[in-house]
Amino acid sequence: MRVFKRDMKLAVRSAGQWLNPLLFFVIVVTLFPLGIGPGPAMLATIAPGVLWVSALLAMMLSLDALFANDFRDGTLEQMVLSGHPLTVMVLGKVMAHWVISGLPLVLLSPLLGLLMQLPEEAYLTLLASLFLGTLSLSFIGAIGAALIVSLNQGGVLLSLLVLPLTVPVLIFGSGAVAAAGMGLETSAHLSMLMAIVFLSVSLSPLAIAGALRVGVAAGR
C-alpha cells in the first residue's frame, strides 16, 4: 500500500508519465482514418480493433518506465532486501501503474470511439472491456518489464517478449466491442476477460518478483 501511494505521488509530480501514453493513444488512433480513408462504414467496422490495438501499444510504451527508474536509483534493491514480501510490493506497484497509465486510456476511449464512428451500442462494452483488459495488460506487461530491468535500453525487446502473451486479451477485448457493435451478447467475452484478470493478478506477481530478484542481483 505504501508503495502504491509513493508511486502515485511521483506520477502526479511528473506529468509525462501518464500524459505520454495517453497522447500516443490519441495520435495512433487518428492515424488510422488518415491511412485508410474517412469512410464512416469502413471506420465503424475496424473501430474495435483499432481502438484496442492502439490501447495495447500505448500500454507497452508506458511499461518501459515501470521499474527502470526505481532500478537506477536503488529503490528497487532496497525493496528486494527490505524483508517485506516482494510480491505484495509488486502488486502495489503494478496497481499504481494501472491507475496512472491504464485508467486514463479507458476514460478517454469513448472520445476516440466517437472519432472512429463506433456504433452507439458499443460504448459501454468498450469501457468495460478496456477497464478489465488494461488491468491484465499491466500485470502481464510488468513481467516483461521486470525481466529486462537490468538492461539500459529494452523498449523493443519488451514488446517482443510481451506482445505474444497479450494476444488473448486483445482477442476477447476487441471481440467484445465488435459484438456489442453488432448488437450481440457480450457476457461471454467479458467473463473471459474477467478470468484473465484473475489469473494474471494472482499469478504474475510471483513471476515479476522472481524476475526483479534476478535483475537486482545481475545489476550489482
Partner: peptide
C-alpha cells in the same frame, strides 16, 4: 546467471 534465471522465468510464463 542473470540471463539463465530470467530466461527460465520467461519460458515458464
Amino acid at each position: 546467471q542473470g540471463s539463465a534465471r530470467a530466461a527460465a522465468i520467461l519460458a515458464v510464463v
